[in-house]
């Protein structure tokens, strides 16, 4: 397509799209934060909703008074200004103190949840997560299992500039990977998150986890998926990390404990034999990008 054609398609697309929209339900419903499948994610959701409603209430009051004045104090309606009304210590104190109280009332629960989030102790499984340009490396430290996770083939083909492939035909477009992170449900899993080249951020909305992957440093995070909620959960890299920042999704495959243990054993075994082979065939070993050349001692 030439630029002109593309623009044309865009122009025609606009109204067409609007009409077609209700038909293909692709997102009108997506309005709010997911409640998620961990205790923490639900607590975060509740915080989010409380502060939201607090703001709504304050908004209604403030905007209410404003609209009232706009309606009833118009010059066109013959309103005369009361120029003496320029100061009132009482109300000024009130509308300073009330917000303070509201804010403290909001800060306390927030702090509580935060303290809980920051407590990574007593975890049953520790996985090292390394973000690189552009994918994720998962390393089960205690079990000698390690593998890389990239955007899956179908999405990767469709996302090429003018690929001609309709994204809506691709299952989980841009949210699918070749090798998801496999974890057990009902288990406190601790992540040790770091970056190989630039900063990335490991984000899984349904777990309420987002932590930056800082090169040379390790950040900790944890989650505990509800026992009754095994399944595939999807997220994306949440820190600009270069050209393909938009194309390094995160998929977590939460399995019942027994299934997970079986998977871990077999994979460990496979990787032991494959060890020599893998060394050579290591696909996207975190390649320190061109910057390494300019950054002494990096990589």
């Amino acid at each position: 397509m030439t630029i002109r054609e593309r623009l044309a398609s865009l122009a025609s697309g606009a109204p067409a799209a609007l009409l077609a929209l209700p038909a293909r339900a692709s997102g009108w419903g997506e309005l709010n934060m997911p409640r998620g499948v961990t205790d923490i994610s639900r607590k975060i959701y509740d915080l989010h909703m409380t502060i939201f409603w607090v703001c709504v209430v304050i908004g209604v009051v403030v905007f209410g008074v404003m609209i009232w004045s706009m309606v009833s104090f118009r010059k066109s309606r013959g309103a005369v200004a009361d120029v003496t009304l320029v100061h009132n210590t009482k109300v000024e104190i009130v509308w300073t103190v009330i917000p303070v109280i509201i804010l403290i009332a909001m800060a306390v629960p927030a702090a509580r949840v935060l303290v809980e989030i920051e407590d990574t102790t007593r975890s049953a499984l520790t996985i090292k997560v390394t973000g690189f340009q552009w994918g994720w490396q998962y390393d089960y430290l205690d079990d000698g299992v390690m593998y890389y996770s990239h955007l899956d083939r179908a999405s990767n083909a469709a996302r090429e500039l003018l690929s001609g492939i309709d994204p809506t035909t691709v299952p989980h477009y841009l949210l699918n990977v070749d090798h998801p992170l496999v974890v057990p449900v009902d288990t406190k899993v601790r992540l040790l998150i770091t970056g190989a080249d630039v900063i990335h951020s490991w984000w899984l909305p349904d777990f309420g986890v987002k932590k930056d992957a800082i090169p040379g440093f390790i950040n900790e995070a944890w989650f505990k998926v509800d026992a009754d909620k095994p399944g595939l959960y999807r997220g994306q890299c949440a820190e600009l990390c270069g050209r393909d920042h938009g194309f390094m999704p995160i998929v977590v495959d939460a399995r019942p404990k027994a299934e997970f243990d079986a998977w871990l054993k077999s994979t460990a075994a496979e990787q032991k034999q494959a060890a020599p082979a893998q060394a050579t065939a290591a696909p996207a070993a975190p390649a320190p990008a061109s910057a390494a050349a300019t950054m002494p001692g990096a990589g």
């Binding site: 997102g27 009108w28 841009l174 984000w203 909305p205 600009l240 938009g246 194309f247």
Partner: peptide, 18 residues
């Protein structure tokens, strides 16, 4: 809120409408 990151040139289809 629905989970679309900033600074991305392309997005999952459920973000299309908005």
């Amino acid at each position: 809120l629905a989970g679309m990151p900033r600074r991305i040139p392309d997005y999952a289809v459920q973000f299309t409408d908005w």
